[in-house]
Structures are given as C-alpha cells and as structure tokens.
Amino acid sequence: MERRAFLRKAVFSFFSLSGISLGVAAAFLYPARPGARKEQDVYLMDEDDLPRRGVRMVTFSVHSDEHDVTMVNRVFVVGSPEGVIALSPVCTHLGCFVNWDANRKEFICPCHGAKYTMRGEIISGPQPRPLMQLPLKVDHGKVYLGVKV
C-alpha cells in the first residue's frame, strides 16, 4: 500500500473510531429512564378526624424502596358540603408549596402569588391548572391517601 493511501486510511479510521466512541459516551451519559412510580396507600388519619367543614393540613411519611429513603410530605384535607377531598400542596405553576389562608379562605402560593379556592380551583395568578387532587380511600374507619412513590 502506498504511504499516502495508508495515511488517508489511518486518519479515516481514527476519526470513525472517535465518532463511535463519542456516540457510546453520549449514550452512557444519558440518564437511565426512571422506573414507573407505583401508587401506594398511606395511612393519614381516622375517619372520625376528617374535617367536615374546613381545611386541615396533614403530615405523613412514605418510604421509597427504590431509593431507600423516607420522605415526609404534607397534604391538605378539605371538607365541604360537596364532600371531602385531598389536595396536593404543590402549586401547579413552578412547584412551591401553597399555604392555606384561613381568613381569606384561599390557598396562596408564597412564590408568585397564585391563588386557589378552598377546593383547589384557580382564582388568579400564573398557574396553568388547579391544584391536584389525590385519591382518598376509607377502609374500616381509617383514611388512606394514594400517593405515587
């Protein structure tokens, strides 16, 4: 083989190999798809303690087997003539935790002033969606909350 032809091939192989390596490196660096989160029922309170009229903030903890950590979370349990619901405290704008303002009867987000009604509907602010409702289950006098872990 001629010297020039050999060099041309060598340079070509070098850049091909580098290209393949870069592809493998990129695939390696791309984060693994996290497994689908499983819904889990977490005990919240006894049925007798459910608020008939008003909002109660309840703190609960869930254990994630995948990451081996216990996370402490909170949820708003809202009682009204329409029934009892559980509202996620996460503002649908950028994910801050909203506070319940008992005087105004509104949920107010401290970050950008998003306001929600007692049942989580939008009053005003930058949020695109109402507060998320979480499933509540009553079983033998105990109230369970469905959360995805």
């Binding site: 493998v24 490196a25 390696f28 693994a32």
Partner: peptide, 13 residues
C-alpha cells in the same frame, strides 16, 4: 452495580 446493570453501555465503559 448500577453502572454495570442499568446505565447504557455501563458494562462496556
């Protein structure tokens, strides 16, 4: 273990 089993091409690297 995660590098070997979960990460794409982890075993190779």
């Amino acid at each position: 273990v995660m590098i070997n089993e979960t990460v794409l091409f982890g075993w190779l690297i």
